[in-house]
Protein backbone atom coordinates (compact mmCIF):
# COMPACT_ATOMS: atom_id res chain seq x y z
CA UNK A 1 0.00 0.00 0.00
CA UNK A 2 1.40 3.31 -1.10
CA UNK A 3 0.51 5.69 1.75
CA UNK A 4 0.86 9.40 1.10
CA UNK A 5 3.38 11.16 3.37
CA UNK A 6 1.78 13.15 6.21
CA UNK A 7 3.75 16.27 5.32
CA UNK A 8 2.50 16.14 1.73
CA UNK A 9 -1.08 15.83 2.96
CA UNK A 10 -0.63 18.90 5.10
CA UNK A 11 1.04 20.87 2.32
CA UNK A 12 -1.76 20.14 -0.14
CA UNK A 13 -4.43 20.96 2.44
CA UNK A 14 -2.82 24.30 3.16
CA UNK A 15 -2.35 24.98 -0.55
CA UNK A 16 -6.04 24.33 -1.30
CA UNK A 17 -7.00 26.79 1.44
CA UNK A 18 -5.04 29.47 -0.40
CA UNK A 19 -6.52 28.58 -3.76
CA UNK A 20 -10.18 28.27 -2.76
CA UNK A 21 -10.46 30.34 0.44
CA UNK A 22 -7.71 32.91 -0.06
CA UNK A 23 -6.13 31.83 3.24
CA UNK A 24 -2.52 32.09 2.14
CA UNK A 25 -0.84 32.25 5.55
CA UNK A 26 -0.26 28.56 6.31
CA UNK A 27 1.04 27.53 2.91
CA UNK A 28 3.18 30.66 2.70
CA UNK A 29 5.07 29.40 5.75
CA UNK A 30 6.21 26.42 3.67
CA UNK A 31 7.27 28.53 0.69
CA UNK A 32 10.62 30.22 0.15
CA UNK A 33 10.85 33.95 -0.28
CA UNK A 34 12.83 34.65 -3.45
CA UNK A 35 13.60 37.80 -5.37
CA UNK A 36 11.00 40.52 -5.51
CA UNK A 37 8.09 38.30 -4.58
CA UNK A 38 7.09 37.33 -1.05
CA UNK A 39 5.99 33.77 -0.28
CA UNK A 40 2.36 34.94 -0.15
CA UNK A 41 2.66 36.59 -3.54
CA UNK A 42 4.11 33.40 -5.01
CA UNK A 43 1.17 31.42 -3.63
CA UNK A 44 -1.05 34.16 -5.08
CA UNK A 45 0.24 33.38 -8.59
CA UNK A 46 -1.33 29.93 -8.21
CA UNK A 47 -4.58 31.20 -6.74
CA UNK A 48 -4.88 33.64 -9.63
CA UNK A 49 -4.00 31.01 -12.19
CA UNK A 50 -6.64 28.58 -10.88
CA UNK A 51 -9.24 31.34 -10.68
CA UNK A 52 -8.20 32.56 -14.13
CA UNK A 53 -8.63 29.11 -15.68
CA UNK A 54 -12.04 28.61 -14.08
CA UNK A 55 -13.24 32.18 -14.72
CA UNK A 56 -12.33 31.85 -18.42
CA UNK A 57 -14.15 28.56 -18.49
CA UNK A 58 -17.28 30.04 -16.90
CA UNK A 59 -17.10 32.95 -19.36
CA UNK A 60 -17.07 30.45 -22.23
CA UNK A 61 -20.09 28.66 -20.73
CA UNK A 62 -22.00 31.86 -20.04
CA UNK A 63 -20.94 34.28 -22.79
CA UNK A 64 -24.26 36.17 -22.89
CA UNK A 65 -24.40 36.59 -19.10
CA UNK A 66 -20.81 37.84 -19.29
CA UNK A 67 -21.92 40.63 -21.64
CA UNK A 68 -25.15 41.35 -19.77
CA UNK A 69 -23.45 42.03 -16.45
CA UNK A 70 -20.15 43.31 -17.89
CA UNK A 71 -16.80 41.53 -17.80
CA UNK A 72 -15.60 43.18 -14.60
CA UNK A 73 -18.68 42.14 -12.66
CA UNK A 74 -18.61 38.66 -14.19
CA UNK A 75 -15.00 38.19 -13.14
CA UNK A 76 -15.69 39.27 -9.58
CA UNK A 77 -18.80 37.14 -9.36
CA UNK A 78 -16.91 34.14 -10.79
CA UNK A 79 -14.23 34.54 -8.10
CA UNK A 80 -16.93 34.34 -5.47
CA UNK A 81 -18.56 31.32 -7.12
CA UNK A 82 -15.22 29.50 -7.49
CA UNK A 83 -14.37 29.95 -3.80
CA UNK A 84 -17.78 28.75 -2.67
CA UNK A 85 -18.17 26.03 -5.29
CA UNK A 86 -14.74 24.59 -6.17
CA UNK A 87 -14.76 21.98 -8.94
CA UNK A 88 -15.43 18.51 -7.55
CA UNK A 89 -14.40 16.29 -10.46
CA UNK A 90 -11.52 16.14 -12.93
CA UNK A 91 -14.12 16.57 -15.70
CA UNK A 92 -14.22 20.26 -16.46
CA UNK A 93 -17.48 19.91 -18.42
CA UNK A 94 -19.21 19.13 -15.09
CA UNK A 95 -18.24 22.53 -13.76
CA UNK A 96 -20.54 25.54 -13.73
CA UNK A 97 -23.77 23.80 -12.76
CA UNK A 98 -25.44 25.86 -10.07
CA UNK A 99 -24.11 29.15 -11.44
CA UNK A 100 -27.65 30.39 -12.11
CA UNK A 101 -28.83 29.31 -8.67
CA UNK A 102 -25.87 31.16 -7.18
CA UNK A 103 -26.95 34.27 -9.13
CA UNK A 104 -30.48 33.94 -7.82
CA UNK A 105 -29.25 34.05 -4.24
CA UNK A 106 -26.89 36.98 -4.64
CA UNK A 107 -27.98 40.51 -3.67
CA UNK A 108 -26.32 42.10 -6.68
CA UNK A 109 -28.96 40.40 -8.83
CA UNK A 110 -31.91 41.66 -6.77
CA UNK A 111 -33.04 43.99 -9.56
CA UNK A 112 -32.12 41.78 -12.47
CA UNK A 113 -33.41 38.38 -11.40
CA UNK A 114 -34.17 37.51 -15.02
CA UNK A 115 -30.47 37.20 -15.87
CA UNK A 116 -30.22 33.86 -14.07
CA UNK A 117 -32.78 32.57 -16.58
CA UNK A 118 -30.37 33.46 -19.37
CA UNK A 119 -27.75 31.50 -17.42
CA UNK A 120 -30.14 28.53 -17.39
CA UNK A 121 -30.46 28.73 -21.17
CA UNK A 122 -26.68 28.85 -21.55
CA UNK A 123 -26.27 25.88 -19.20
CA UNK A 124 -28.92 24.01 -21.23
CA UNK A 125 -26.84 24.62 -24.37
CA UNK A 126 -23.77 23.25 -22.62
CA UNK A 127 -25.69 20.16 -21.45
CA UNK A 128 -27.10 19.56 -24.92
CA UNK A 129 -23.65 19.81 -26.46
CA UNK A 130 -22.10 17.29 -24.07
CA UNK A 131 -24.90 14.73 -24.03
CA UNK A 132 -24.53 11.47 -25.89
CA UNK A 133 -25.45 10.62 -29.46
CA UNK A 134 -28.29 8.29 -30.42
CA UNK A 135 -29.53 6.81 -33.65
CA UNK A 136 -32.85 7.85 -35.13
CA UNK A 137 -35.47 5.12 -35.37
CA UNK A 138 -37.16 4.13 -38.60
CA UNK A 139 -40.62 5.56 -37.97
CA UNK A 140 -42.15 3.63 -40.86
CA UNK A 141 -42.08 0.71 -38.41
CA UNK A 142 -45.07 2.34 -36.70
CA UNK A 143 -47.11 0.81 -39.51
CA UNK A 144 -46.30 -2.67 -38.22
CA UNK A 145 -47.90 -2.04 -34.81
CA UNK A 146 -51.34 -3.33 -33.93
CA UNK A 147 -53.94 -0.78 -32.91
CA UNK A 148 -53.39 -1.66 -29.24
CA UNK A 149 -49.63 -1.25 -29.60
CA UNK A 150 -50.10 2.10 -31.31
CA UNK A 151 -52.21 3.34 -28.41
CA UNK A 152 -49.64 2.31 -25.83
CA UNK A 153 -46.64 3.55 -27.84
CA UNK A 154 -44.33 6.00 -26.08
CA UNK A 155 -41.97 8.41 -27.81
CA UNK A 156 -38.40 9.45 -26.98
CA UNK A 157 -36.71 12.80 -27.22
CA UNK A 158 -32.96 12.94 -27.91
CA UNK A 159 -30.93 12.59 -24.66
CA UNK A 160 -29.63 16.06 -25.37
CA UNK A 161 -33.10 17.66 -25.45
CA UNK A 162 -33.50 20.55 -22.99
CA UNK A 163 -37.01 21.98 -22.60
CA UNK A 164 -37.19 25.46 -21.10
CA UNK A 165 -39.87 27.92 -20.13
CA UNK A 166 -39.19 31.42 -18.87
CA UNK A 167 -41.46 34.37 -18.06
CA UNK A 168 -38.83 36.51 -19.82
CA UNK A 169 -37.84 36.80 -23.46
CA UNK A 170 -34.52 35.02 -22.92
CA UNK A 171 -34.32 33.59 -26.43
CA UNK A 172 -34.51 37.11 -27.90
CA UNK A 173 -31.96 38.36 -25.38
CA UNK A 174 -29.65 35.50 -26.32
CA UNK A 175 -30.11 36.19 -30.05
CA UNK A 176 -29.42 39.90 -29.63
CA UNK A 177 -25.96 39.04 -28.23
CA UNK A 178 -24.90 36.88 -31.16
CA UNK A 179 -22.59 38.46 -33.70
CA UNK A 180 -24.30 36.51 -36.50
CA UNK A 181 -27.53 37.52 -38.18
CA UNK A 182 -30.48 35.30 -37.41
CA UNK A 183 -34.05 35.41 -38.59
CA UNK A 184 -36.14 37.17 -35.96
CA UNK A 185 -33.18 38.82 -34.25
CA UNK A 186 -34.03 42.30 -33.00
CA UNK A 187 -31.89 44.90 -31.21
CA UNK A 188 -31.68 44.68 -27.44
CA UNK A 189 -33.39 48.06 -27.03
CA UNK A 190 -36.54 46.77 -28.76
CA UNK A 191 -37.03 43.58 -26.77
CA UNK A 192 -40.13 43.30 -24.63
CA UNK A 193 -38.51 41.55 -21.72
CA UNK A 194 -41.60 40.44 -19.86
CA UNK A 195 -43.13 37.82 -22.11
CA UNK A 196 -43.23 34.06 -21.88
CA UNK A 197 -40.61 32.16 -23.78
CA UNK A 198 -40.70 28.46 -24.66
CA UNK A 199 -37.39 27.15 -25.95
CA UNK A 200 -35.85 23.84 -26.78
CA UNK A 201 -32.17 23.11 -27.21
CA UNK A 202 -30.81 19.84 -28.54
CA UNK A 203 -27.99 18.47 -30.60
CA UNK A 204 -28.43 16.77 -33.93
CA UNK A 205 -25.22 15.00 -34.85
CA UNK A 206 -22.53 17.69 -34.58
CA UNK A 207 -24.87 20.66 -34.54
CA UNK A 208 -26.43 22.38 -31.61
CA UNK A 209 -29.97 23.59 -32.24
CA UNK A 210 -31.94 26.18 -30.33
CA UNK A 211 -35.51 26.92 -31.28
CA UNK A 212 -38.34 28.97 -29.88
CA UNK A 213 -41.58 26.94 -29.83
CA UNK A 214 -45.15 27.73 -28.81
CA UNK A 215 -46.79 26.89 -25.53
CA UNK A 216 -48.68 23.91 -26.95
CA UNK A 217 -45.53 22.39 -28.49
CA UNK A 218 -43.79 22.93 -25.17
CA UNK A 219 -46.57 21.13 -23.32
CA UNK A 220 -46.54 18.33 -25.86
CA UNK A 221 -42.78 17.73 -25.60
CA UNK A 222 -42.99 17.92 -21.80
CA UNK A 223 -45.74 15.26 -21.86
CA UNK A 224 -43.63 13.08 -24.18
CA UNK A 225 -40.72 13.43 -21.75
CA UNK A 226 -43.03 12.10 -19.00
CA UNK A 227 -43.44 8.92 -21.09
CA UNK A 228 -47.12 9.49 -21.83
CA UNK A 229 -48.56 6.97 -24.26
CA UNK A 230 -50.07 7.96 -27.59
CA UNK A 231 -53.52 7.34 -26.09
CA UNK A 232 -52.77 9.73 -23.22
CA UNK A 233 -51.27 12.30 -25.57
CA UNK A 234 -54.37 12.10 -27.76
CA UNK A 235 -56.59 12.54 -24.72
CA UNK A 236 -54.61 15.56 -23.58
CA UNK A 237 -54.06 17.34 -26.90
CA UNK A 238 -57.15 16.25 -28.87
CA UNK A 239 -57.29 17.27 -32.57
CA UNK A 240 -53.81 18.85 -32.82
CA UNK A 241 -52.07 15.66 -31.59
CA UNK A 242 -51.45 14.46 -35.16
CA UNK A 243 -49.77 17.69 -36.22
CA UNK A 244 -47.83 17.98 -32.96
CA UNK A 245 -46.46 14.46 -33.25
CA UNK A 246 -45.68 14.56 -36.95
CA UNK A 247 -43.94 17.92 -36.76
CA UNK A 248 -41.93 16.92 -33.67
CA UNK A 249 -40.69 13.84 -35.53
CA UNK A 250 -40.00 15.83 -38.67
CA UNK A 251 -37.88 18.34 -36.78
CA UNK A 252 -35.91 15.66 -34.99
CA UNK A 253 -37.38 16.52 -31.57
CA UNK A 254 -38.62 12.93 -31.26
CA UNK A 255 -36.16 10.32 -32.43
CA UNK A 256 -37.63 6.95 -31.48
CA UNK A 257 -40.60 5.10 -30.04
CA UNK A 258 -41.21 2.02 -27.98
CA UNK A 259 -44.28 -0.08 -27.45
CA UNK A 260 -45.27 -2.78 -25.02
Amino acid sequence: MNTPPESLKQLQTHFSEAVFSDQRGLIAESVMQQGELSAEQRVGIYRNSVHGILWQYLASLYPVCNQLVGEKFFEGFSDLFIDQHPPGTPFLADYGDGFSAFMREHDAFAKIRWINQVAELEWARHQAWHDTNQLVTDFSLLATLTEEQQLSAQFQLPDSMQILHSPYAIHQVWLAHQPEDYAGKIPLEEIQLQQDDYIIVWRSERQLQQVQINEQQWQFLSAVRQNKSLAELSEQFQEPVGVLLASAIQHGWIISFRNY
Partner: peptide, 28 residues
Amino acid sequence: GMAKTDGDAKEWVKLPKGTCEKLVGGVV
Protein backbone atom coordinates in the same frame (compact mmCIF):
# COMPACT_ATOMS: atom_id res chain seq x y z
CA GLY B 1 -1.33 28.72 -16.43
CA MET B 2 -3.40 31.89 -16.48
CA ALA B 3 -2.27 35.39 -15.75
CA LYS B 4 -4.91 37.07 -13.64
CA THR B 5 -4.40 39.87 -11.20
CA ASP B 6 -5.74 39.86 -7.68
CA GLY B 7 -9.32 40.99 -8.06
CA ASP B 8 -10.49 44.02 -6.19
CA ALA B 9 -13.24 42.30 -4.27
CA LYS B 10 -15.14 45.48 -3.46
CA GLU B 11 -15.10 47.06 -6.87
CA TRP B 12 -17.44 44.78 -8.76
CA VAL B 13 -20.24 44.00 -6.32
CA LYS B 14 -22.26 47.19 -6.54
CA LEU B 15 -24.13 46.82 -9.80
CA PRO B 16 -23.66 44.92 -13.00
CA LYS B 17 -22.57 47.24 -15.77
CA GLY B 18 -23.12 45.56 -19.07
CA THR B 19 -25.56 45.24 -21.90
CA CYS B 20 -28.42 44.65 -19.45
CA GLU B 21 -28.64 48.42 -19.09
CA LYS B 22 -29.75 48.70 -22.72
CA LEU B 23 -32.84 46.60 -22.14
CA VAL B 24 -36.05 48.41 -21.41
CA GLY B 25 -37.00 47.10 -18.01
CA GLY B 26 -33.67 45.21 -17.90
CA VAL B 27 -32.89 46.74 -14.53
CA VAL B 28 -36.05 46.65 -12.48
